[in-house]
């Protein structure tokens, strides 16, 4: 497992384009949860797009260099943490290629004029939580989730691509973390089915039936809401669903921060296209 035994207090943090803009509520709630848990997140100075699906499709070398620039900006003495699964994937993929191709590494180091650490550990926020352990989470628990029934929706990227399989397998951990905080995960739904990704922009007709299928499976499992680990999934599930009544779709970090006692949730939830507040009020999680 990369980065075992690392000091998890100071972490470089790579937000990525979605968390910087359309999913700002995920970013803010994640930062709050991290602060409550005693993590010191230091945003990667002047980070850029991770390479993204689009750049990877059009020009693999540009996409690779984009990811590597971020790696060249990361201080080697602390892990680089990402929240977006796709960013994590592209950063790790690039890092892996640098390990395999010494000449590419040297060329990239010269290009950016900065050393790139091959020992850098690139991890997801969920991994940080799992390594912190249940005691830290329960210690911070302020608002018990009161049996909130949710489908932990991982989407396709977090654990699936072959090049992400290095390291541990964190399937199920989102459910485990929220169970510790009083939630009830329902796994008998399409928890890893792809949300449609960028096709949502160009071929919504393909994405809508898919999103409806995912939500139908959650409803059939008896869920009150879905909790996602990916900002793009959260958006697609909200904007492409044509089902009524609509289930609220939470960012994982929102539910986490809420349970840990964060107070400024109003600002996150007003940014949702499906208002989650009635559900949370019914569960007496918010006034």
């Amino acid at each position: 497992m990369p980065g075992r035994g690392l000091n998890l207090t100071d972490l470089s943090y790579f937000p990525g384009c979605s968390l910087e803009s359309s999913a700002r509520e995920s970013n803010i709630s994640m930062m709050e949860a991290a602060e409550i848990l005693g993590l010191n997140l230091i945003e990667l100075e002047d980070w850029n797009c991770c390479g993204s699906s689009s750049a990877n499709i059009l020009d693999k070398e540009i996409a690779f260099s984009l990811a590597v620039r971020n790696l060249s900006l990361a201080p080697p003495d602390r892990p680089l943490m990402a929240m977006c699964p796709r960013c994590l994937y592209h950063l790790r993929e690039a890092h892996q290629r640098l390990k395999e191709e010494p000449e590419t590494l040297r060329a990239q180091e010269r290009r950016w004029g900065r050393p790139i650490s091959l020992g850098l550990s690139i991890i997801h926020f969920l991994e940080v939580l799992v390594r912190l352990g249940p005691a830290r989470l329960q210690q911070g628990l302020v608002r018990n989730l009161n049996g909130l029934k949710f489908v932990p929706y991982y989407g396709c990227t977090l654990f699936r691509p072959p090049s992400l399989r290095q390291g541990s397998y964190y399937q199920g951990e989102m459910g485990n973390v929220l169970t510790m905080l009083g939630g009830v995960p329902l796994d008998k739904a399409l928890t890893q089915r792809c949300c449609g990704s960028f096709l949502s922009a160009a071929r919504a007709d393909v994405v809508t039936p898919l999103v409806n299928e995912i939500l139908a499976s959650a409803v059939a499992a008896g869920a009150e809401c879905l909790v996602t680990s990916c900002a793009m999934c959260q958006l697609n599930l909200e904007i492409r669903c044509t089902w009524e009544p609509r289930l609220p779709i939470f960012h994982f970090s929102e539910i986490l921060a809420l349970a840990l006692g964060a107070q400024d949730y109003e600002g996150w939830f007003t940014r949702h296209l499906v208002d989650p507040r009635p559900l949370l009020q019914a569960r007496e999680l918010i006034p």
Binding site: E20, S21, C49, S54, L58
Partner: peptide, 30 residues
């Protein structure tokens, strides 16, 4: 699928311009 390709082009254009993906700009240009 020219629409899908056009979308990818606009994302890359945005990255070239800003270093990050600017969603509104991407969608308007697309």
């Amino acid at each position: 699928e020219t629409n899908i390709l056009d979308f990818h082009r606009e994302v890359l254009q945005s990255i070239k311009q800003y270093g990050r993906a600017h969603k509104l700009g991407i969608m308007l240009r697309y």
